[in-house]
Design a protein around this nucleic acid. Structure first.
Lengths: 204, 204
DNA sequence: TAGTCGACTACACGCACGTATAGGACCGCT
DNA sequence: AGCGGTCCTATACGTGCGTGTAGTCGACTA
């Protein structure tokens, strides 16, 4: 966290990121953002040209911030492949934003996804991890962690926890960690999955 | 697949599910759906009352269809816990629809998520699988598979495959299968994750 | 033939929202 | 003082879209 930025432009951007994340792009009007940022609607146009311009600015900002954080972590020597639990509220928000942005089809979000996959694949190879399709696994992993981010409120609700709370995040992270560190399927289930796949192959 | 339903009502519902899934609820107008279904906009209102009514109808329909499929699978004696690969196009569409619906915050989608978590947790217990927080793991698993569904186009793109094709789905499924059946982290990474978590715990 | 009912269309209303414009307040410069 | 530029507000415009209404057509009933 550098020095706080209290300019109207920054306030608008932050409010937009928050509201876009919570409600989605379409359900958030410029006036909503203006109100949340304590400015007039016109000022948003002045600074960002249009709603789409604001969205692009948010995309690249979030993208850059996440990249910065990643480099920071790497500089510390922690070989973080992207799936370790992170609790920083700001970063959680940004990851969620990216999740939504991917659904709305933003260029920056697509680039971000590819970037994550690239990095994870590289990590797999550097660690000398043995798997049949490293890039495929990296992509699946990125989507899964994306699902955790995007659906975190639903997870909390299903667990009877208050969404966004410390407890909910902790429990989710521990559960995800468990999944990543323990094989889920036993031999029997594995065999059934193989059969199902083979049946499909035969049919088409 | 039972006998096809070619009534205007069914055509509207199917078109709505398709467009809602592809573009999202907000970006799809009633007129778009009407055109896709080959009817007038007014007829949608006649049958479903409002756009929200149409959305609810879609929700419950998709919900029911997925439930039917699940029962079908269970009747066949396949102990499918919900994370085995499924390639049926219709079902894939429905799962994706649910993923989007969860983000838009629909009551039916929330119920569906909880239902999946319930079923998965029950499965864990029936199989006697040993884990510290079965419900937490079930919820995380549901969110992860949800992420795979929702972000499947991005996965395909990152893999250089055409979205929605046989190859893309197969590769994604195999990769996901690999993740579920093999521990991802080695002892070193595991230790680092623990440290990160402990550091967070100390701070807050 | 007359009457009713559901399926369906055409069309107009009203509102919300993105966009555009004009102008005021404040600041730095000469 | 005068001037230009930037930040910011207030307000008006256009339009896309959900909604409401009126009305047509065909099937069924008596």
């Amino acid at each position: 966290m550098t020095t706080e930025d209290f300019t109207a432009r920054a306030r608008i951007r932050d409010a937009a990121i928050k509201l876009f994340t919570e409600r989605g792009m379409e359900k958030t009007s410029i006036l909503d953002i203006a109100e949340a940022a304590g400015v007039s609607g016109g000022l948003i146009r002045h600074h960002f040209g249009s709603k789409d311009g604001l969205r692009e600015a948010c995309d690249t900002y979030v993208f850059d911030e996440l990249l910065k954080f990643k480099e920071e972590v790497l500089a510390k020597g922690v070989a973080n492949p992207g799936f370790l639990p992170t609790f920083d509220a700001r970063q959680l928000l940004f990851r969620r934003y990216m999740g939504r942005a991917m659904l709305d089809g933003s260029a920056a979000a697509e680039a971000q996804f590819t970037e994550i996959v690239d990095g994870t694949e590289r990590y797999f190879r550097e660690q000398g991890m043995d798997m049949p399709d490293p890039r495929g696994v990296a992509a699946a992993l990125a989507a899964m962690t994306g699902g955790l981010m995007i659906l975190q409120d639903h997870i909390a609700r299903a667990l009877g926890e208050e969404p966004g709370t410390h407890e909910a995040m902790l429990r989710m992270s521990m559960a995800a960690g468990h999944l990543f560190m323990n094989p889920l399927a036993n031999a029997e289930v594995l065999e059934k999955a193989r059969e199902a796949l083979a049946a499909y192959e035969r049919k088409e």
